[in-house]
Simulated assay, not measured.
Amino acid sequence: MPFPPPKTEDSRQRFEELRTTAKDALEEIIASANETGWGTQEIVAALIEAAQSLKDAATVDPDPADDPSIPEAVREQIGHGEQFD
C-alpha cells in the first residue's frame, strides 16, 4: 500500500495523517494474515516487535542510505592486513 504525501507542514496534522494511513495499512496486513490462518493477537505482537526493531535500528543509524555499500567498505580495507573469503 503506497503512502500518500503529507497534506500539511503542521507536525500534529502530519502525524495524524500518517497514523491513519499506517493504521489502514496494518489492518490490511492483519486481514491478509488472518486469511492464511494467523491469529490477530500473534500478528499484532509480531508487528509490535518488528516495529520496535526498526525503531531501534533507526536510532542507531537514522539514515542508512548514506552508509557506504559493502563492496566499497571492503575496498577500503584492502591492503590493511585483513583477509576475505
Rank of each mutant, 00 (worst) to 15 (best):
D85H: 05
K7P: 00
P5E: 13
S32D: 13
Q52G: 01
W38I: 05
T36A: 10
N34M: 15
A25H: 11
E82A: 12
Q41F: 08
A31T: 13
K7L: 11
V44H: 00
G79E: 02
I48W: 05
A33N: 14
P4K: 11
L47C: 09
D61S: 07
A46E: 12
D67N: 10
E49A: 09
I70T: 02
A31I: 04
L26A: 10
E16H: 08
K55P: 02
T40E: 15
E49Y: 04
T59K: 08
T40A: 02
T40W: 01
P4F: 06
E76C: 02
A58Q: 06
E72W: 01
K7Y: 04
F84L: 11
E49W: 04
G81L: 12
D67F: 01
A45W: 00
V60T: 07
G37R: 09
A65C: 00
E76Y: 01
S53G: 10
P62V: 04
Q83E: 09
H80N: 14
N34I: 08
G79M: 07
Q83N: 09
R14W: 08
A65H: 01
L18H: 09
D10P: 03
D85Y: 14
D63H: 10
E72F: 02
L26Y: 08
I48R: 08
A22D: 07
Q52E: 14
S53Q: 13
S32G: 15
E16Q: 14
A33R: 15
A25I: 14
R19H: 11
P4N: 09
S69H: 01
Q52Y: 07
P68A: 02
V74E: 04
A31E: 14
D56W: 02
P5Q: 05
